[in-house]
Design a protein around this nucleic acid. Structure first.
Length: 316
DNA sequence: GATATTTGACCCTA
DNA sequence: TAGGGTCAAATATC
């Protein structure tokens, strides 16, 4: 009905972890057979995919629950309060923050459909799209009327693989649902992870004012769509975080700490070779800029972050 | 009866 | 002007 269900990240992470472990075990089983070197390489890729997916999910968990960690952390395309308030004005429609992700539907896993992202959505329309086999469904936050939440999303089954849905989000949740979701995600994490997150968020609080006002991506000629689609699948060949991004990102007290956990589970290495298609995070934007992250210029409004961090600390 | 979904029509943007 | 996005009445479901 209204709410198709919650996208339980814990289940996703659990499943991915199990898959990774199984792949690891399989790899170990194959090691004596040198003739199966190719299999080993394939398994390495599988493991990389799992690691990437887990890294993204873990990153999302403490970045605040936005569907895309990249946008949640990096975007400046998030709607300002004035933009959000003007959402009902159609002329502003296209200027809202926009990002998308592809979700593979695994029937029988309980993760039915691509709609379980932790929010409550209400379908308000469906249209046949030119050139697309399947219609596009339009959803908006259930709390649009009660809380004025202007978040919307579009769900479209991909032509190539009907089991994969492309979900495009627009606007940020301003409803209480957003906060509850963040808190819930924090609570789900292991105590050890909480410690790590607390540490990182402390660092974030200490440094965000230093980081974000001056932080900016280089204006590369890479098209945002391409970058977005491949950011976590095969990006580092073209997008070298350490090389392309400004130094503050690599400071010991900067968002690099976000990625320290990625490194812990190998994402730094694996980003270069993996092709995770289970959950592919796509940073996208309607912006006209050619920045790798659309119109992400990192002139992030601190207001986007403060409430989340403060909320998070209530639980520690 | 309340709430969610469907669907045709309308509006806006490119 | 075509196509995408949204509205709102009709319909379905609980």
């Amino acid at each position: 009905m209204e709410k198709v269900g919650s996208w339980d990240r814990e289940i996703v992470i659990s499943e991915l972890t199990q898959g990774r472990d199984l792949a690891t075990e399989l790899k170990n089983q194959l090691q004596p057979a040198k003739s199966r070197k190719a299999c080993g390489l394939l398994l390495e890729k599988i493991l990389s995919s799992y690691d990437n997916a887990l890294s993204v999910l873990n990153c999302m968990a403490f970045l605040g629950g936005e569907p895309s960690p990249i946008n949640g952390l990096l975007t400046s395309a998030s709607p300002t309060s004035s933009e959000a308030s003007l959402d009902h004005v159609s002329k502003k429609r296209k200027t809202l923050a926009k990002w998308s992700k592809q979700v593979r539907v695994c029937t029988g896993t309980g993760l039915e459909g691509p709609l379980d992202d932790g929010y409550s959505w209400r379908k308000y329309g469906q249209k046949d799209i030119l050139g697309a086999k399947f219609p596009r469904a339009y959803y908006r936050c259930t709390h649009r009327n009660t809380q004025g939440c202007l978040a919307t999303k579009q769900v479209q089954r991909t032509d190539e693989d009907p089991s994969i849905f492309e979900v495009t989000y627009r606007g940020r949740h301003s409803c209480i649902q957003e906060r509850l979701k963040q808190k819930k995600e924090i609570q789900r994490l292991e105590p050890q992870q909480k410690t790590i997150i607390l540490k990182n968020e402390t660092q974030e609080l200490d440094t965000k004012e230093e980081i974000f006002p001056s932080f900016s991506f280089p204006s590369t000629p890479i098209e945002s769509d391409v970058v977005g689609n491949e950011l976590f699948s095969e990006p580092v060949k073209e997008i070298n975080f350490s090389a392309s991004y400004s130094p503050p990102f690599l400071s010991p007290t900067t968002p690099e700490s976000y990625f320290s956990r990625m490194n812990d589970i190998g994402i730094d290495h694996n980003l270069q070779t993996s092709e995770s298609d289970f959950i592919e995070i796509i940073s996208n934007s309607t912006s006209v800029t050619n920045s790798p992250f659309g119109d992400l210029d990192f002139s992030i409004d601190p207001v986007d972050f403060d409430p989340k961090f403060l909320d998070t600390f209530e639980y520690f």
